[in-house]
């Protein structure tokens, strides 16, 4: 969980960096983004990493599901009265639920853009590249998509809020001097990354 989780965190940074280009909504920005999308789907090294990414998502999801089922089995009779919040944060206990929601979002998100980019009927832009930009821009003129994306980024934020530091702990990387730094970086990462992701659909909706 820890290794795939941290790899997915690195992916989030790369994914965000690339997609922040969408904030440039000029015709030039459209061509630049489409050229970038073509590069990301055809350059061999990127393709190789993307297969590692798919495998990581699947492993992270299935391993998480397996662990959650084992954990459920470990306590067949629940407490009648439990003050769980007295000793831990709710999102640290709901990683399986938050993760499932993120997975559902990934499926929707990939169908919407990834699938269309690879196999969908996309038009061509002035440079002869598949016009993914127009599909994205059109999608985010629909309010419910924007709302879904913003809510799901909130879910992702809570998943990362626990997940980031938790991954270090699982790998044994806990040291009195560095753990507070790791925790703070984790919270910063969990807040900043989803906010910037959510900014894209909101920005495109407002400026459509």
């Amino acid at each position: 969980m820890a290794l795939t989780g941290l790899f997915l965190c690195i992916f989030l940074i790369a994914h965000l960096a690339g997609n922040l280009q969408l904030l440039d909504m000029s015709p030039g920005g459209q061509l630049k983004f489409n050229a970038y999308a073509k590069f990301m789907t055809t350059f061999p090294l990127v393709k190789a990493v993307s297969y590692l990414l798919y495998a990581s998502i699947l492993f992270h999801a299935f391993d998480g599901l397996l662990l959650a089922m084992q954990n459920r089995k470990a306590r067949p009779i629940k407490y009648a009265y439990e003050k769980a919040n007295a000793s831990s944060k709710w999102f640290s206990r709901q990683m399986a639920l938050l993760g499932t929601l993120v997975l559902v979002f990934i499926v929707i998100h990939m169908k919407q853009f990834w699938y269309e980019m690879h196999w969908g009927p996309l038009g061509m832009d002035a440079d002869g590249n598949k016009d993914l930009y127009t599909l994205v821009a059109f999608s985010f003129t629909q309010l419910w998509y924007v709302v879904l994306y913003v809510i799901m980024m909130g879910v992702l934020a809570f998943h990362l809020m626990h997940g980031f530091a938790s991954a270090f702990q699982s790998l044994g990387l806990n040291h009195p001097r560095y753990m507070p730094i790791i925790k703070n970086v984790g919270v910063f990462f969990a807040v900043i990354v989803p906010i910037f992701f959510a900014l894209i659909p909101v920005w495109m909706f407002i400026n459509a």
Binding site: Q70, A74, A84, S87, K89, S92, H162, S166, Q169
Partner: peptide, 11 residues
């Protein structure tokens, strides 16, 4: 023994 897995909640 059938204990669950650690998810680092810290409780």
């Amino acid at each position: 023994e059938g204990f669950g897995n650690c998810s680092n909640t810290g409780a």
